[in-house]
């Protein structure tokens, strides 16, 4: 049935392993030794894809994603004639995990792309008015394509770091106006202006029993009861997306301020990476 959302098949995991994993998590222990609110090791390489206008490779533990930005020219939306556009797309190619079949983005990929899109869009990170070339006629379009290379959980945060870092490293080709046509002079470039103060990032939590933890691995995602992603920019919440399960009011009250707190240290890591662009393409 086309376009119907279907209850997902649970990952095949021996019952004993599932139960023991849940039990140790509820005792505050994670199988990789992290604390409940610790991120995995993060590595970010920006600017190493030479054919892209901006790019970033992000390692979040064993999760690996790559984001590339291509700048194009398009017609503005009628209700925002003086603003450029941002389009975020996420693909999960079959190289990323043994369970992934080739095909167009499924509902999970579409959901992640849309949440990352909303987080960036509402953060104030990009000045959409600065992307206007001729009001009502020609604007810059920022196409952000995120590809998952290795899926070990928390694709939201990895994809958002990659998209944000790729945009921060983007240079805009100069727009040349000839009569009524606009073309891009790809050899003449200026950096895309971004507001690093409002760097958009998501913070993803998983709930197992009554325990809440951040940055779940794929194994933790497979045994958790509920998952929630919070988009943060500076001190504001700019997106929320609950996926599985149900939450209490207290859960929400605990996670929202925690997300703002965790955001600060995650932001430091991303900003440091932005200051040292990579020439070599290292996957």
């Amino acid at each position: 049935m086309y376009s119907v959302s279907i209850t997902t098949q649970p990952e095949i995991l021996p019952q004993l392993r599932r139960e023991s994993l849940r039990r140790i998590i509820e005792q505050g222990v994670r199988s990789d030794g992290r604390g409940k609110f610790d991120y995995r090791k993060i590595a970010i390489h920006v600017g190493s894809v030479r054919t892209a206008d901006g790019s970033a490779i992000v390692h979040l533990g064993n999760t690996k994603v790559i984001a590339g930005v291509k700048v194009g020219i398009g017609v503005p939306f009628p209700d925002t004639p003086d603003e450029g556009a941002l389009i975020v797309n996420l693909e999960m190619p079959p190289i990323a995990a043994p369970t992934i079949e080739p095909g167009p983005p499924d509902e999970n990929a579409i959901e992640i792309a849309r949440v990352v899109d909303r987080t960036i869009r509402h953060s104030g990170f990009i000045d959409f008015k600065s992307l206007c070339i001729v009001p009502g006629k020609h604007v810059y379009m920022l196409w952000v394509d995120v590809y998952v290379l290795n899926h070990d959980g928390n694709l939201y945060d990895a994809a958002c770091i990659a998209a944000t870092a790729a945009l921060a490293s983007t240079t805009l080709p100069r727009a040349v106006i000839e009569q009524d046509q606009v073309r891009l002079a790809r050899e003449e470039r200026a950096p895309l202006k971004v507001n690093v103060d409002a760097l958009p990032l998501t913070i993803t939590f998983a709930k197992v029993g009554n325990t809440i933890l951040v940055d779940p691995t794929l194994e933790e995602e497979n045994v958790c009861d509920s998952k929630i992603t919070v988009g943060v920019a500076k001190d504001k919440i700019v997106a929320i997306q609950k996926t599985d399960g149900a939450l209490t009011r207290d859960n929400i009250g605990q996670m929202i301020p925690k997300a703002v707190e965790l955001y600060r240290s995650l932001r430091e890591i991303v900003i440091n990476a932005l200051q040292s662009p990579h020439r070599e393409l290292i996957i």
Binding site: R118, K242, A246, R249
Partner: peptide, 26 residues
Amino acid sequence: IMYNKGLVTLLQADGQWSPEEIMRGV
């Protein structure tokens, strides 16, 4: 909201909110 159990089963947000505004909204 599951009314009797007091559980939230859909929660999304966009725009710009302070953490306190989120809780007031809930």
